[in-house]
Design a protein around this nucleic acid. Structure first.
Length: 454
RNA sequence: GGCGCGGUAGCCAAGUGGUAAGGCCGAGCUCUGCAAAAGCUCUAUCGGCGGUUCGAUUCCGCCCCGCGCCUCCA
């Protein structure tokens, strides 16, 4: 059964398969801007893409090339560096490292290539140069270079937004018009190269049009071309990237290369908090560290993120993390019961749900239907394959809390009381522990302390 | 204003033209000094109103409500 995935251009599911004769599947996923810790809304997108990557690995073993960029030069990274009076590279290194650590904790496979914008200035300049020569771009008086949207007939095909409509109506568009009106020929035009400004500090590069830095969109076009070629099989990102980012990428790449940029576009939906989009600008965000501080494991977050369909908005709650933690516990126990046994129970519905437009909640449903039937007949290796596809690492540590010494002491006393069959004292201590937020789980040979579930 | 998405049990969440997976929580029972774990059982007619149909939660229309994009953004 092939992998079918919703395609944003046609809005219909389509099979994923390599288009080129070498059989390599070319996959580009828009990565983070490294100027601050990524929030869990960002990670929804990366976790979803990780499942795509894993399905592709299973489908086309050894023939997947996965590229995910790091945006390490833009307004935000530069501002952060200037504010902190540090070199740009220092700042982006710090947040790149943090991003990698969080991805690892969430069990996301690293992409095969992780190019940076600053590492591909020449490639970007070269592309802009071609666009200038072909008449798709123009240099403004200040040395900035803009893409001329009117030169590309297909502009707006992905987002189905015509340039005229962008100008119509709202106060918002007036605002953006005012911001750039002095340099652009048309409000819809977007920057390919931004002329150096004083607030950019030392962060500028030479170009045929003067010192400056690349616009945001061109990096993906250039890096995708360099590492995957002119035409790729799949390009993904969050819905917010659909317009203008991906629309602009298509315009640049296709005008420059004269070839289809991407066969397949896929966009995952947003994570909401309190019914609103989680975003850095709204400030309603959680980072992975925030959740870890509340005692949740990264794997629980991964599970919770997979519990909703990737193309539906998901309203994130701490409650979903409790549910995830419990579900993972069940899965760990089930896996342990499997040992190394082989069997012929049918696990296919789980993977089939994933291959059917990434129906992760459907897959989890099918998984628990299986789990509820018990471990008999379930093949351990097949089960592990399913866990691989979902990226659920059942060996990852369950959340552990520091046990205060007074709690440990009380627990020890209770255990001794229990061994002495002093039930009244044992029960009193259990109650006392509970009041202090700890539950004591007895085993035959000892006990475990856990924070009380709430 | 333009483009788009969604409204399914207490919470989360799949799905289907023929009376609705799964997770969490909760309740009851079994087991067990107690608690936990484990096992069993129980909990919805799918936003509203019309239409099509033998039959709609699933298709169509209208309405109500929520959200996203159109500006940096996963």
């Amino acid at each position: 059964m092939p992998i079918r995935l919703h395609e944003s251009l046609t809005r219909t599911p389509r099979e994923l398969k390599p288009a080129q004769p070498d059989g390599v599947f070319r996959f580009y996923n828009c990565g983070p801007t490294v100027y601050a810790p990524a929030h869990i809304g960002n990670f929804r997108s990366f976790v979803v893409n990780d499942v795509i990557r894993r399905l592709l690995d299973l489908e086309f073993p050894g023939k997947v090339k996965h590229v995910r960029n790091l945006t390490d030069v833009d307004d935000k990274t530069i501002k952060r560096a200037q504010d902190e009076q540090r070199p740009l590279a220092d700042v982006t290194k710090q947040w790149t490292d943090k991003f990698h650590a969080d991805c690892a904790a969430l069990n996301c496979l690293p992409p095969h290539v992780e190019p940076t914008a600053t590492g591909h200035i020449r490639e970007q300049v070269d592309m802009i140069d071609v666009l200038m020569k072909k008449g798709n771009a123009y240099r403004a008086a200040d040395g900035s270079v803009y893409f001329k949207v009117s030169s590309f007939d297909d502009y707006g095909k992905l987002s189905r937004v015509k340039e005229r409509e962008l100008q119509a109506g709202t106060a918002l568009s007036h605002k953006s018009q005012a911001a750039d009106a002095d340099e652009k020929e048309d409000v819809s035009d977007f920057a390919l190269w931004k002329a150096h400004k004083t607030e950019d500090g030392a962060n500028s590069w030479d170009s045929p049009w003067g010192r400056g830095r690349p616009g945001w969109h061109i990096e993906c076009s250039a890096m995708s071309k360099k590492h995957l070629g002119e035409t790729i099989d799949l390009h993904t990102g969050g819905v917010d990237l659909l317009f203008p980012h991906h629309e602009n990428e298509i315009a640049q790449s296709q005008c420059c290369n004269g070839a289809t940029f991407a066969h397949h576009w896929y966009h995952s939906e947003h994570l909401l908090v309190d019914g609103r989009k989680m975003s850095k600008s709204l400030g309603n965000l959680y980072t992975l560290d925030d959740l870890k501080a509340k005692g949740f494991s990264p794997m629980a977050l991964r599970y919770a993120l997979l519990a909703s369909h990737p193309r539906k908005q998901q309203n994130f709650t701490l409650d979903s993390l409790h549910a995830a933690e419990s579900a993972l516990k069940t899965l760990r126990a089930f896996r342990a019961a499997l040992g190394t046994q082989s069997g012929d129970a049918v696990l296919e519905p789980i993977l089939a749900a994933l291959r059917d437009d990434l129906n992760t909640p459907g897959a989890l449903g099918a998984l628990f239907t299986l789990v509820n039937r018990g471990p008999a007949g379930v093949d351990a290796a097949a089960f592990d394959r399913v866990m691989f596809a979902l990226g659920l690492d059942l060996n990852a540590a369950a959340p552990k809390a520091e046990i205060p010494s007074d709690i440990a002491d009380r627990a020890k006393q209770r255990w001794e009381a229990k061994l002495g069959k002093d039930w009244a004292k044992a029960d009193a201590l259990r109650k006392d522990l509970a009041a202090r937020g700890w539950s004591m789980l007895d085993r035959k040979d000892g006990y475990t302390l856990e924070p009380v579930k709430r």
